[in-house]
Design a protein around this nucleic acid. Structure first.
Lengths: 208, 208
DNA sequence: GGGCTCTCTAAGCAACCGCTCACCTTCGGG
DNA sequence: CCCGAAGGTGAGCGGTTGCTTAGAGAGCCC
């Protein structure tokens, strides 16, 4: 966000806030491993060796394997939420804001799909406290989208019989991008974002 | 399918084809455990004790823990595909067929969400051969939905600029129901099915 | 009733897991 | 030049995992 160069799906320095350098390398390695094999199937030895270190080095920077997942989940969710809220709080009609929100949220889930996969699908591996924190962040996601849709209905731009259900469906659609998106596939994150923004406007009955 | 009584989300005897009785009990226990904790976090001792047996009893009916997942994945995918194709091959306009396909596919993913969760999210835990088999079944899902949408476009009932992308989005939307659906939540599988059928008809620009 | 099959169990093996500990290296400050 | 803090390693501990083995009961045909 604060760096000059950005790629289609996210930042050039995604984990710039994590220091020192070794801690960041371990965290990046953990994201890759968790996304590939899942949290429980990933060993601490695998994470350490991906980061070019011995198994014991992990415990200098993190107390447990679960702390790694907590850090990844929190930072990832905060980034996604920031992306969504930036679009939601921008100037413009509800139609424009909803389109931009979906476009950037989808772009993030496609471009950062390794992080997104960990963040979205490894929630149950967290302990109760950490999970509660993440669930609270998700509720803010939900509220952000619902408010835009409510604004659009109030302004007469949208035709939505079931606001809560439609909100759920819109978010579900965006989040599931992280599951199927393939870097070697035919679509770029930008293209998926544009397609999905169009589809969501149709779902809420917005005139184009 | 062959039994008389059916619930909203699926059959009354979901695993009737699995014999003998002990093998079915183990399989049902495995579905519950995999859905709750995930494949890798589930131990063979946990599965056996849920079925009221000793850990060794599992290996009389299944060669490995992975064979259990294979069986579950294959049966689950075949059932979901059957539900989808039954709706797709019914009489009626593309609009009616798409609505019914989404309605029943979503109903299945909501009603059988424990099976669906295992089937959809534990694919990577399978070995290469078993995974290839499942991927082939998924492609048939994809083709089924795409054909209905193509029919609708050809008949002038739908307005879809990107058929492949829209097909992907429709299926993604339906499948993700398995992730968020909660039995204690406010919606029944029937209600979610009806809501989603309406949303999908909007996505393809069908006149109602 | 003796043998045969099928089903299940108690006990345990080898491998691997998350994590710890004693020790080594590097490096800036006095 | 010594020192202490910070970051790293090799070896390994206790516990758990998937799976195996030897053998016990229950039914069933002859």
């Amino acid at each position: 966000m604060s760096t000059a160069e950005e790629t289609a799906g996210g930042e050039a320095q995604p984990w710039g806030e994590v220091t020192p350098d070794a801690a960041r390398r371990l965290l990046v390695a953990a994201v890759e491993a968790f996304a590939e094999r899942g949290y429980h199937a990933t060993t601490t030895r695998d994470i350490a060796s991906r980061a070019g270190m011995s198994p014991a080095a992990l415990y200098i920077h993190y107390k447990t394997k679960e702390e790694l997942l907590q850090r990844i989940s929190r930072i990832g969710h905060e980034k996604a939420l920031k992306v969504l809220r930036t679009a939601a709080e921008a100037e413009g009609s509800p139609t424009e804001r909803l389109a931009e929100a979906v476009r950037s949220f989808v772009r993030w889930h496609a471009g950062q799909h390794t992080v997104a996969r960990v963040v979205q699908y490894e929630l149950d591996a967290l302990g109760p406290d950490a999970r509660a924190e993440i669930v609270a962040l998700r509720r803010r996601n939900d509220a952000t989208v619902r408010e835009i849709i409510e604004d659009g209905v109030a302004a007469g731009e949208f035709d939505v019989p079931d606001v809560k259900g439609t909100t759920l469906a819109v978010l579900s659609l965006c989040i599931d991008v992280a599951r199927w998106f393939n870097v070697n596939g035919p679509r770029t994150p930008d293209e998926v974002g544009a397609l999905y923004a169009d589809l969501v406007l149709r779902m809420v009955g917005a005139q184009k």
